[in-house]
Amino acid sequence: MLHLTSHDLVFLIPMALVGMIAFGGIPFTARALRISCRAAGAIFGALLAVALLEALPLLI
């Protein structure tokens, strides 16, 4: 079960931004492909942050 609170946004939002920047750095000539790649990066970054936030209590 997913237990996210408001202070988890401190970690979730920067991870989404990092994913968006990392995937947005891939050079494409088509604007639509570049935007969709940035969106996929933001989603991937947010999912990675959620996975890390859920796994952290298991590691401690």
Rank of each mutant, 00 (worst) to 15 (best):
M1I: 03
M1S: 08
L2R: 08
L2A: 00
L2K: 04
L2H: 05
L2C: 03
H3V: 01
H3M: 08
L4C: 13
S6F: 09
S6M: 05
S6W: 12
H7K: 15
D8K: 06
L9F: 15
V10H: 05
F11K: 02
L12C: 10
L12S: 05
L12N: 03
I13K: 07
I13W: 04
P14H: 01
M15P: 00
M15A: 14
A16P: 14
A16Y: 12
L17C: 14
L17D: 00
L17V: 15
V18N: 01
V18Y: 02
I21R: 02
I21F: 09
I21W: 11
A22E: 08
A22T: 15
A22Q: 10
F23A: 10
F23D: 03
F23V: 05
G24Q: 05
G25Q: 09
G25S: 15
G25C: 12
I26H: 05
P27M: 06
P27Q: 13
P27E: 15
F28Y: 10
T29E: 11
T29G: 14
R31T: 13
R31Y: 06
A32H: 10
L33Q: 10
L33M: 07
L33Y: 11
R34Q: 15
I35F: 09
I35W: 10
S36N: 13
S36Y: 04
C37T: 14
R38G: 14
A39E: 04
A40H: 02
A40C: 08
A40I: 13
G41E: 00
G41W: 02
A42D: 01
I43L: 13
I43T: 12
F44D: 00
F44Y: 06
F44N: 02
F44C: 09
F44K: 04
G45Y: 01
G45C: 02
A46N: 09
L47G: 00
L48Q: 03
L48Y: 06
L48E: 04
A49E: 03
A49P: 01
A49S: 14
V50L: 04
V50C: 08
A51V: 12
A51R: 08
L52G: 13
L52F: 15
L52T: 04
L52E: 04
L53G: 15
L53F: 06
E54D: 11
A55T: 15
A55D: 04
A55E: 11
L56H: 11
P57F: 07
P57Q: 09
L58W: 02
L59E: 00
L59W: 14
I60Q: 10
I60S: 09
